[in-house]
Nucleic acid binder design. Structure first.
Lengths: 245, 245
DNA sequence: GCAGTTCTGTTTATGTTATACACAGTTCCC
DNA sequence: GGGAACTGTGTATAACATAAACAGAACTGC
């Protein structure tokens, strides 16, 4: 497993020098990765099997293992490729808040485009350059705020977590069925609440008062709370710095 | 799939009336669920297979299907059982903030005890009474704040998301290997940063300034920011209400 | 009390997975 | 030109979920 991790790191980070002996490979890691992304975008990460991806090229399952050590590594490549180049936010004016907001929105956008990236990015996995770049980009929005390094990193975790959390609720279903399934699910919950409402009085009241319209606000609402709270901390730091001077 | 959902709802919510004809079942759904939880606690959700759970009783794989329609339903039962009775927070004084903080900490505690619950609770799945109860409990901490129903629900989403997000980073690895793997992973990332540091200047600086000690603060840090920000909104609502009166 | 019905646990079978291993053909280095 | 290195394939294995059919057990209605 250690070797596999190294190989994976190499695939994600290194140059892929072609050996000189032997026949030319018919495929490239990039092509395979792209095919995997295509399948995952269209049918979800569960549809991505070695068989399926190889089949996209009319090749046998085992041929893929000449390019990639295993499925885990393929998924890691897919993830880092799908994330794409990290956003450059230096052009955005107005301080840390609009920058970090923009960052969160871009993360949302890319997650919306590749919902399977959520599943693909759980746990301690080999991290790719784009993923690290996204983190760097977020950290960069906060370097001039007077926050400590730990605070900045913790903040990035909170914001990332929020975007992911909202995405997970909204995007888990393959887009094709989303409307139907979601509606069905909502109906089931409503039904349960109607039947067992006395056991969940607060929830019942809240849902009754919640307008059916206010649905997609979760991302913005949470982000605003988080950034408001962060603003208080930053203001504190500024004040302290002023006193100390 | 719809039928399966119904059956699942029935299992989670209904009384399980025993039929009067035929031999007595040797097992109960509760026993099976508990066995599944035991396996998942000890070896992770991936170790939970029908074979494995049946084996815990010395039964064949297929015997489980007499009790549970399929693996998805078993996992749903495991999740709702593992969550346990939702917390009752009425005894906690000091208003919404200490109550919601306590709620988050209890969610953290139960997640720590059953880390696999994270994996088990993604997507639109049949929701159980305990899970709904936990949500109700969280909503209950905010009913007296002047927030609208939508705002309360969105807030619960944010707080839940944060706890889950921190948990996912900390608890993904089975406890046994956690120290080692985590250390290894950190070493790999440090290595990458050393090698490619110029590509990630902000991150490098932040990690250098971050004391190695400040690691488990993520939960508290993020929660405080969120609640600080929420506090501003609630204060606003109180002010508005005062004006209007 | 007994026949028939219903239910349990098992056996057997199918279709997916990932991936290990050995082989035949291809291409380049020396 | 011969050997080494590499590619894509064929074959094999071990998990996995779950469908279908079956033998025996226990209760219901007579």
């Amino acid at each position: 497993m250690a070797k596999s991790a190294d190989r994976s790191i190499e695939l994600l980070w290194g140059d892929r020098a072609r050996p000189s002996r032997g026949p030319k490979p018919a495929l490239t890691v990039e092509q395979i990765t792209a095919a995997g992304i295509g399948v995952a975008d269209a049918e979800g990460l569960a549809a991505v099997s070695m068989q399926r991806v190889a089949g996209e090229f009319g090749f046998t399952t085992m041929s893929l293992y000449r390019y990639v050590p295993g499925k885990a590594e393929l998924v890691a490549l897919m993830l880092d490729t799908a994330l794409g180049e990290p956003p450059v936010l230096t052009a955005i004016t107005g301080g840390w808040r609009p920058r970090l907001t923009e960052w969160a929105e871009r993360l949302w956008t890319v997650t919306e485009k590749h919902p399977w990236s959520l599943e693909a990015s759980v746990g301690l996995r080999p991290i790719g350059p784009n993923e690290l770049g996204w983190t760097d980009s977020a950290v960069g929005t906060l370097t001039a705020t007077g926050l400590t390094g730990s605070e900045i990193l913790d903040t990035v975790v909170v914001v990332t977590g929020h975007v992911r959390s909202i995405a997970q609720q909204t995007l888990t279903i393959p887009a094709a069925q989303r409307g139907l399934t979601e509606h069905q699910w909502a109906a089931t919950v409503t039904d349960l609440l109607r039947t067992h409402g006395d056991r969940f009085p607060s929830l019942l009241a809240a849902m009754a008062s919640a307008t059916a319209a206010g649905q997609d606000k979760g991302l913005a609402f949470g982000l605003e709370r988080i950034l408001d709270g962060l603003g208080l901390l930053i203001a504190d730091r500024v004040r302290q710095a002023a006193i100390r001077r």
